[in-house]
Design a protein around this nucleic acid. Structure first.
Lengths: 238, 238
DNA sequence: GATCAAATTTAGCCATGCCTAAATATTATG
DNA sequence: CATAATATTTAGGCATGGCTAAATTTGATC
């Protein structure tokens, strides 16, 4: 009787868990692809640091290796891992765009469902969704969607909290992980593409901003401000 | 520091695996909800019989119980299990219909993707998909889609191989699990709703049939015939 | 450079869900 | 109705991916 078991799996296992780790390393490493600590991963993924260590060791042993991991010194994506992470990220952002544009989800509703489905999107489905959307460049929160081959154009985004006072900027993207913050932003008219200017008057970690052509400056809580990224804005209208 | 572990899970675990077993019991039990044997489940699910036994014992111990299981005498769905199975089946069939109607899948392509996604469809997504489709009653293969509350109207379907010779019938549904068979049926014009009549001339388990208004009778292989269900047909046109 | 706190890893455990091999129950047959 | 064939279950493993508790390493401070 034949064995149903696979013959010695050296081929990378693409479990949901592996996907989640790779995507987290991609996101936490940022565009500079900095090393990511076990603690940061643990917090991002909602697991204990010890569990992270175990998984990183496994990922490093894959052939081809998914990550470059040096004990006690954090982890970076290896090419194979980066490729996979970008694929998942592409799925996630395409799904968000699709749920929003074709299935009437609001922008604070898309994240959770996209997060669950992203692991199970076939090449075919990915292609059909992209085609229906007309090969979009961004998701509803302004994040760039990686291309099919993994290409992700760099962008000089900066967190709003790091932006200089008085310099006009444009909202480039907002975090999709906090849906109540998204509803609040919606209410304030804070959307990707909208102009924004930081006013003098920072108190604690809150930020005072003028949004779009708004007359009244608005004070953003730390939580809200932390989710907003901006780019150099248009020359101020005169 | 708080424990991330759930406080003693008496609540039914809805893992993918559990879903698969429940759906298999529903399908194999048929409309009469007959007992299903471990072997039948093992074959349907592609696992060993011993694994089935283990899972059935676990399902029977859930509170509320998912199945009625008597050692050595097969298994039936308990109400909670039936509810969950119908929910998954609804997801599957809605997905097939959606992929087919909105994302240009052919009817032999829909099954695999639906099978993977069916476990991860939120109530919201289920509702939005159903709404976009106009609350459809059947999937692309003619299977009835359970309603949101689990209602599934009974239907007097009979396998083509059991249908009497010469009595006109209508194809009610075809199996979605064999995509090459589906391509073959497509070629023959064998679709749900098409009239069909079994002709004299059964050889082995093959069946000789006249399809729709076709002039030439066609011989269907056992494999093809096994996937076709029919209902009493319209009075023959005269 | 010693010391201490924080970060990280190791060691050992648990549940899930699969496997094989061996035991046992059921069913069919002579 | 005894026995053989078949179906099913038990027993004992294994991999995955969590967990806690106890080392250990790193890096900051005096």
């Amino acid at each position: 009787m034949y064995d149903l078991v696979q013959p010695r799996n050296r081929i990378p296992a693409n479990t949901e868990s592996v996907d989640d780790y790779l995507k987290a390393i991609l996101e936490l490493g940022g565009p500079e692809e900095a090393r990511v600590t076990s603690n940061a991963l643990a917090q991002h993924l909602g697991v204990r640091a010890a569990s992270v260590t175990g998984m990183l060791q496994k990922l490093a042993l894959q052939k081809p290796s998914y990550v470059k991991y040096e004990k006690h010194h954090g982890v970076r994506l290896a090419p194979a891992g980066k490729m996979r992470a970008l694929e998942i990220l592409r799925h996630h952002r395409l799904l968000e765009r699709y749920l929003h544009d074709f299935l009437d989800y609001s922008w604070d509703e898309v994240h959770d469902d996209a997060e669950r489905l992203e692991h199970f999107i076939s090449e075919r489905l990915e292609d059909r969704i992209a085609a229906k959307l007309g090969y979009p460049e961004t998701d509803p929160h302004g994040h760039l969607i990686p291309e099919r081959n993994g290409a992700l154009p760099p962008r000089q985004e900066v967190l709003l909290s790091k932006w200089a006072c008085g310099v006009p900027a444009v909202v480039s993207s907002v975090s999709d992980r906090d849906s109540s913050a998204l509803r609040e932003m919606e209410r304030l008219g804070l959307r990707p593409g909208v102009g924004i200017k930081v006013e003098a008057g920072t108190r604690g970690a809150t930020v005072l901003v003028r949004i779009g052509s708004g007359v009244e400056p608005v004070r953003l809580s730390e939580r809200l401000a932390a989710g907003i990224s901006v780019l150099a804005g248009p020359a101020p209208a005169r």
